[in-house]
Structures are given as C-alpha cells and as structure tokens.
C-alpha cells in the first residue's frame, strides 16, 4: 500500500494510473454499450489514451504511430462501416448461451492476464534492444527493423502488397461503369415496364 502511494504521488505514476483507469472504463463502455456511437467514441478515445502509455515510457515514436494508425486509420474505417447503421438508436443484441460465452471469455481473459503479468515477479527482466541515449526513437526502431527483423519486415510488406492488389481487383471490376448512371437506366426500365403494364 505504501509502495502504491509512493508511486501515485510521482507525476509519471499518477499519469499511469489515471490513463489505465480511464482506458479500462472506456473499453468497458465499448463492450457493454448498446449504442453504436458510444461504443465507437469510447474505443477511439481508449486508443488515444493507450498512446499516452508509450509517451510515459519515453517511446515517443511508437506513441505517435499508435495515434496515426489506430486512431487515424483503423478506427476511421470502423466508423465508416458504422455509417450504415442508424447511429442514434440502440441495437438489440441477441445473445445465445450467454453463460458459456461468459465463462469461456472470462477464463481466456484471465489466462492472458496471467501470461502477461507472470514476468513481473521475475527480477531478471532486461530490454533486449534498449534505447540509446542521444539517438532518436525513430532511428532506434529503424536500425532493429532493418537488421535483425529484416525478413519478417519484408514478409509483412509483401503481405500488405498482396492485400492491396486483392482489394483493387475486388473493388475495381466494374470501375468504368458509373453506378449512378446504371441505376438511372434501371429506374428508367422500371418506369417503362410500368407504362407497358398500363
């Protein structure tokens, strides 16, 4: 308890506990809310707060990447999908077998927490690639990426390229015809048919 008090009175400790409490509350809202807008807003702001942890740890570059990738791109895509719902109404969820889902979900969450929290009791935790004094974050990440992790990095790049080409092919099949124009033709055909029936 004394340890906790000593931690929370430092500015970093205070920021850490504040960010963690807020993040947990926001993600809880994301899961439990029945309103699309609340869930989306909570998830986006939770992502912003997670970048706060990176800044506390001095990993400025990763914090900014978290902001740009998750807040700027991934969440914006989610919200684009949410356009198709009526955002102002609550969604009726139909949960089946909620007891089994609850137990299994809770157990796997517990297992994950234990797996990730276990090394805390081990004293011999060391950073494999510690930050260098006087060298920027971005340079540190770059050096590791292009030496030790070059092959995984290139494989990920190829995967992204494949996904991009697939996306273009899927979306671009009928790129030359305008949807609006073809719709107009359909509507005209419909009107002609009705006239014929009369």
């Amino acid at each position: 308890m004394e340890n906790f008090l000593a931690q929370i009175t430092t500015i970093e400790g205070f920021a850490f506990y504040l960010f963690s409490a807020l993040t947990i509350v926001l993600f809880w809202i994301t899961v439990m809310s029945k309103n699309v807008l609340y869930a989306m807003t909570a998830l986006a702001s939770g992502m912003v707060l997670i970048s706060g942890f990176f800044f506390i740890l001095g990993a400025d570059f990763l914090g900014v990447v978290q902001l740009i990738v998750y807040v700027g791109a991934v969440m914006a895509l989610y919200s684009f999908a949410m356009m198709f719902f009526d955002a102002t109404r609550n969604i009726k969820e139909n949960n089946t077998n909620s007891a089994i889902v609850f137990v299994l979900g809770g157990l796997s969450a517990l297992a994950l927490v234990l797996i990730f929290a276990a090394p805390i009791h081990n004293e011999s935790i060391q950073a494999l690639y510690p930050m260098h004094e006087g060298v920027g974050n971005a340079q540190d990440v770059g050096i590791i990426l292009f030496t030790k992790y070059l092959i995984p990095f290139e494989v990920a790049a190829v995967m992204l390229l494949v996904a991009m080409i697939a996306g273009i092919i899927l979306a671009g099949k009928k790129m030359d015809n305008s949807l609006t124009e073809s719709m107009d033709e359909d509507v005209e055909d419909e009107i002609m048919k009705r006239k014929d029936l009369k």
Binding site: T41, A44, I68, G72, G136, A138
Partner: peptide, 21 residues
Amino acid sequence: VNVGILIVIGMMAAGLYGPLL
C-alpha cells in the same frame, strides 16, 4: 518531443472525429 511532425499529423488525423461524430 523528437517526433514533432508526426505528433502534429497524428492529432490532425484525430481531428476527423469532430465532424464525423
């Protein structure tokens, strides 16, 4: 911070939630 340009770009990206929401 050492990544000033990225911070500015990232925050302007987060700004899209205003008009969107």
